[in-house]
């Protein structure tokens, strides 16, 4: 799954500027998270047409990059996230940053940045999980 990472200074109105540009381009945002250091941070979004979104934002002067991230469908009930994280932990997989969001039909999507994504995807698939395709 492609996630768009946008470099932002920590000052008012920056996120709105991005959401406004994406709204104008009629690109739907599925989920988002902010990784902040105080002075600056990354605005991370899962969205439709990620390549197009990156091109548009780059043209508007934003520093942004597409990252391949793990996106796994998990059941939306107690203990499920723990089961997922325990699986990754048992295989020595380090989660650099992550977030999640609910979906219809009692489902959630767990999203994580990991090294060697292809290998991690094989691990979760082998454990019976389905990858989220957007």
């Amino acid at each position: 799954m492609k996630q768009l990472h946008i470099f932002l200074e920590n000052k008012p109105g920056r996120i709105e500027r991005i959401t406004a540009i994406l709204a104008e381009a009629e690109i739907n945002i599925t989920a988002m998270t902010i990784q902040d250091t105080g002075e600056y941070g990354l605005f991370k979004v899962l969205l439709e047409r990620p390549n197009e979104a990156q091109t548009i934002l780059s043209e508007k002067g934003f520093a942004c990059a597409l990252k391949d991230v793990l996106a796994v469908r998990v059941a939306d009930r107690p203990g499920e996230l723990n089961r997922m994280v325990a699986l990754l932990n048992s295989k020595g997989i380090n989660i650099k940053d992550g977030h999640g969001f609910p979906r219809p039909n009692n489902e959630s999507v767990f999203c994580a940045e990991v090294d060697d994504l292809a290998a991690v995807e094989r691990v979760v698939s082998a454990a019976g999980y389905q990858l989220f395709e957007g």
Binding site: H5, T37, S58, G61, F62, A63, C64, A65, D97
Partner: peptide, 8 residues
């Protein structure tokens, strides 16, 4: 922009 990788 062109050399930004998206990582903190």
């Amino acid at each position: 922009s062109k050399l930004f990788t998206g990582d903190l």
